[in-house]
């Protein structure tokens, strides 16, 4: 009995301390997140962590506890005094708790978040989005903004780069093919469209068109935080590592100015 009390108290104390620590850093657990979808992921991460940390501490503490309290004083084989092979209470609590936790996790965050994502991405809710056509080729991201007649957004060096206005929903239209291939534009592989700071990732698969919706929540850029970039996350051949493009999230007026510049650049 004393053993249980000691163990229990240490466990509770450590778990509380760890969860307190988690609550201190919870806006940084995914480092730098600037989109609604990303915050959903980060909240889910923190929610799960708050429960899973005590679980992990329970087992880890038990292993340490074994090394301290339950170790044999020497290497001789002496039968343990205690030989319990069954303890209904312990097994029932263990099984019940693991079911309860898993069902909880599935309802929240999993099912709840999927409902939220489903609702947000529902077409009827997405009337005035900024459409960005994203073409993945080996090895380049090509961004075009058909609403603004921008066929390929590039920065001053002529490299693909994208700028988005803060607070406005963006609809990414994702395709994988190679418009610059000399004879076979369909020679394409799977890429994965990832913006670390947005917390979104979607594979871009040859032969399919996919949509991804995202609302940036604050201004930032690749220069201020390198997580603000478009990065290919699925291996796509030797150039995979370099298949990235800088991204900026700017204010509305700054976005308009950027659009003007891009349009001008396009006209030559």
């Amino acid at each position: 009995m004393t053993e249980i009390v000691i163990f229990g108290l240490v466990w509770i104390a450590l778990s509380l301390a760890a969860d307190l620590g988690l609550s201190q850093i919870k806006s940084h657990t995914m480092y730098f997140i600037i989109s609604r979808q990303g915050h959903l992921a980060e909240d889910a991460f923190n929610f799960l962590a708050a429960f899973l940390i005590p679980v992990a501490i329970f087992v880890a503490l038990f292993l340490v506890y074994t090394l301290i309290r339950f170790r044999a004083s020497n290497g001789d084989a002496v039968r343990s005094r205690q030989q319990t092979v069954q303890n209904k209470l312990f097994v029932t609590v263990w099984v019940a708790l693991s079911f309860a936790l898993n069902i909880l996790f599935w309802l929240h965050p999993t099912a709840a978040d999927l409902e939220t994502m489903f609702r947000r991405d529902f077409l009827a809710n997405n009337r005035h989005d900024l459409v960005v056509d994203v073409t993945a080729r080996q090895w380049e991201w090509i961004f075009s903004l058909p609403q603004y007649h921008i066929t390929q957004a590039v920065n001053r060096q002529g490299l693909d780069a994208l700028t988005l206005p803060v607070g406005r929903r963006v609809e990414f239209v994702l395709r994988s093919y190679d418009p610059f291939h000399s004879y076979d534009v369909q020679a394409a592989v799977i890429h994965s469209f990832w913006v670390p700071a947005f917390g979104i990732k979607e594979d871009v698969v040859p032969g399919e068109t996919r949509y991804e919706f995202v609302t940036p929540t604050r201004t930032a850029s690749y220069a201020t935080n390198p997580m603000v970039r478009v990065q290919c996350a699925e291996v796509c051949g030797p150039g995979h590592a370099w298949m990235e493009a800088p991204l900026s999230v700017v204010s509305g007026p700054a976005f308009d100015a950027w659009v003007k510049r891009e349009q001008k650049r396009q006209q030559g």
Partner: peptide
């Protein structure tokens, strides 16, 4: 005991991965 500890970390992080919004960030 070490193996149990290591697998514990592997299994717990698997639960994070099983949640789609988290997975969409950390996959790959």
């Amino acid at each position: 005991l070490m193996s149990m500890f290591n697998f514990l970390i592997g299994g717990i992080t698997g639960v994070f991965l099983a949640d789609p919004p988290i997975n969409l960030q950390v996959h790959d």
